[in-house]
Every structure is written in structure tokens, then in C-alpha cells.
Design a protein around this nucleic acid. Structure first.
Length: 154
DNA sequence: GCCAACGTTGGC
DNA sequence: GCCAACGTTGGC
């Protein structure tokens, strides 16, 4: 089992949106970054646990837990000229972008904010990608140690 | 293959 | 809104 963290802007698609979906499940579309694409296409497996992270908001941080319920498949929104993340270089015969389906599991008892994690300044969290300067990856792998440590803070 | 220009992310 | 830190594009 693998552990991940995925970022989304709460104004666009937050954890409450996910919870409100039928079956509390939604496809994670719109990722247009190759590193993140590769992880969704190749590495994310059914049953993997994922932190839902709210970015670009008043208090960026980890807000909940979800689970991968469908493994990588082509992101069809890339084929749609009217879609926000349309990419003419991706077509159904040779899809460039992939997504996974995730299911809401629960909110954390409290939000674990980025600010708090930085202030904590825990050496065990030093190599957490999230805390590394300039890291803009919207999907990142977590070690079980990081996962457990973060969960223990809730 | 280099690198300047440009676009995006995301914290602040 | 600003801007640092990237990633991508495309001319050469």
C-alpha cells in the first residue's frame, strides 16, 4: 500500500465537494504535469491512502483522507475543446494525460496547516516534499513514516 | 542541446 | 497582488 498527498483549491474542488459526490467518489482530472501524470498512471494503486490538501486558500493544509478506488486511466477532459484543461496534443488514441478516481473517507479531526508543520520544524519532516521550498507538485508520494506522523498530529 | 521567454503554482 | 521557483516551449 502506498501513501500520497494531493492538492486542490477548495474554491475549485475541495474536500466537501468530494464528500458531496455520488458515492463520495470523483475522478481527479485536470492534472497537466508529467511527474504527477506518471504517478497517477503508473504508481497509484487501488486502496492507496491519500491526504486531501487544500492549497491557495486562507489556511493551506491537510484536511482529510481519501482512497484510490480506480487506477490510472485517460483524462478525457483533455479531449474536450470546451474543457478548461483541454489539450489538443492529447487524443483518445494516444492520451497524454491520466487520472485516478478517489473516494472520500473522512475529514481530519482538525486541519493540519502548512504553517503549523513549518513551525513544528521536526527533523523527521525535513524531507517531506510538501515542506521543501519551491515544491509545486500537486501530487506527491509520502512514506508510511510521514503518513503516520502526520496522522498522529490530528 | 542550450537557453531565453513565457506560463503556472501556490504561499504570503 | 506579488513574486520565487519551477516547468514548458521553441528558436537557434
Amino acid at each position: 500500500m502506498n501513501y500520497w498527498l494531493m492538492k486542490s483549491e477548495p474554491d475549485v474542488f475541495g474536500i466537501d465537494h468530494l464528500k458531496a459526490m455520488p458515492k463520495k467518489t470523483e475522478h481527479w482530472d485536470g492534472v497537466r504535469n508529467y511527474q504527477a501524470r506518471n504517478m497517477m498512471r503508473d504508481d497509484m494503486k487501488k486502496g492507496d491512502q491519500v491526504f486531501f490538501y487544500h492549497s491557495n486558500c486562507d489556511e493551506p493544509g491537510i484536511v482529510g483522507v481519501m482512497e484510490v478506488v480506480r487506477e490510472g486511466y485517460p483524462d478525457h477532459t483533455a479531449f474536450d475543446p470546451d474543457a478548461k484543461y483541454y489539450d489538443p496534443k492529447s487524443d483518445p488514441d494516444n492520451p497524454r494525460w491520466y487520472m485516478v478516481d478517489v473516494k472520500y473517507k473522512r475529514h481530519l479531526k482538525r486541519n493540519i496547516s502548512l504553517r503549523e508543520l513549518k513551525e513544528r520544524d521536526d527533523p523527521k519532516l525535513a524531507d517531506l516534499p510538501l515542506l521543501r521550498k519551491g515544491n509545486r507538485l500537486s501530487i506527491m508520494p509520502l512514506t508510511k513514516k510521514h503518513w503516520d506522523l502526520l496522522l498522529s498530529l490530528e
